[in-house]
Amino acid sequence: MTAPLDVTGTAAEAQPEAVLQGVGAKAIQGRSLGQIAWTRLKRDKVAIAGAVIVVLLVLVAALAERPFGGLIALFGDDPNVPNQDAIDPLTSAPLAPWGGISLEHPLGLEPVNGRDIFARILSGAQISLLVAFLATLLSVIIGTLMGVLAGYFGGWIDTIISRLMDMFLAFPLLLFAIAIVGAMPDRAFGLSGNGLRIGVIVFIIGFFSWPYIARIVRGQTLSLKEREFVDAARSLGATNGHIIFKEVLPNLVAPILVYSTLLIPTNILFEAALSFLGVGVAEPQASWGGMLTRAVDYYQSAPHFMIIPGLAIFITVMAFNLLGDGLRDALDPRNR
């Protein structure tokens, strides 16, 4: 019989000190879901470019007028006051060549009234982003509430809310908005003029758009309420309110955030469409859709008058869509 090999004290023996040596040199650090998502998002250069454009648009809109800094005062005249001295009375075109483009007016002047296009683009950004953000916030609040209630409780609550979704989705929203805004009085609810119009547009868009996000939230809630952590919380005696606010809603932040970034450009286009049809923001207040309406009559003599607000809408919508796509990929737990 062969004697057992004695490896005591040799390299073949795994000493505890040798195993633990160097463990404290570089401790393994865990990463939160937010850190993982941010790491993924940073690798998506297209999404980062969209985020940069979105941030710049928000800053430009916030700093456009004098109470917030006055970019309009630095780059141009009052966007809502005509400047007839800069217009040829015979041709209704700007007296300066190239549509009035100069250092003082970097994007030129509008035909007929001579208002600065750059200043009106800045002012229009305020209207578009204000309406889009407020309408999206309203629809997200209502849609999240309805979707969570329908998905978590089910039964007759789910049936009623689901039928409400079907009714709202079948509603002719654009025609309803045109009818309501067009027949609106000059003063109501303590508001008047464009303040009243903006308030009504925000309410119409937000109140009738909630079913889109409610369907997404309902589907996610149906899946989450069957997960192990919800069963664990329920077995510990947690109430339905605690489970909804502490367990379900935190796991809905990612899809709500992604869909919100995709809903904002839709609302921007809706507001521009209403202004283009003449039932949105009224003149002389600048809006991108209203600028396109006036540009239709001058697309041959002053094509820049149509191209510039069109590009503003295109770039804004594209930036939000790129950011939304990037957030969707970054927040998807199935991505590696």
Rank of each mutant, 00 (worst) to 15 (best):
E17V: 09
I243Q: 06
M1I: 11
L322H: 03
I268T: 03
D6S: 10
F168I: 10
V131T: 10
D297Y: 09
S301T: 15
R120G: 14
G9I: 03
G155Y: 05
M184P: 13
I101H: 09
S139A: 09
L224G: 05
P4S: 12
K26Y: 08
A125E: 00
R120N: 14
L191A: 06
P250I: 08
S162E: 08
L5S: 10
M146F: 14
L174P: 03
V58Q: 11
L41Q: 00
A11E: 15
D77F: 06
I213F: 10
M146H: 09
K246I: 12
T239L: 03
T239S: 11
R31C: 04
G76S: 06
A233T: 05
E65F: 03
A18N: 09
L292I: 01
P16K: 00
P211W: 07
A125Y: 01
T261F: 05
L274Q: 05
V230Q: 06
Q29Y: 13
K42E: 14
I178H: 10
S260D: 01
M165I: 07
G108T: 14
A214F: 10
N194R: 04
E228F: 10
H105L: 03
L323H: 01
L173F: 11
L149S: 04
R120A: 10
N267Y: 08
D186E: 14
R115Q: 13
L169Y: 07
G326A: 07
W210Q: 04
V60A: 03
F68A: 13
L173Q: 09
D88Q: 02
F245R: 14
L149A: 07
A135G: 10
F118M: 07
L56S: 14
I180C: 13
D85M: 04
V248I: 15
H304E: 07
L57H: 01
E271N: 01
A93I: 05
I264C: 02
E247C: 12
D88R: 01
A312P: 14
G99M: 05
I36W: 04
L327P: 02
T159W: 06
F75P: 02
L145Q: 06
T266K: 08
F245D: 13
N251S: 11
Q29I: 15
G22N: 02
W210E: 03
F189P: 05
M1C: 12
K225F: 02
A232V: 01
S260H: 03
A282F: 07
R336A: 12
P82E: 00
Y299Q: 13
G199V: 08
L224M: 12
E247Q: 15
V202M: 05
L269I: 09
M306A: 15
N83D: 06
L109N: 01
Q15G: 11
P67A: 00
N335S: 14
F153V: 12
M165C: 15
R234T: 15
H242G: 09
P172A: 02
S92E: 13
G70R: 03
V81E: 14
G241I: 01
R120S: 14
I87A: 05
F314V: 12
L138W: 11
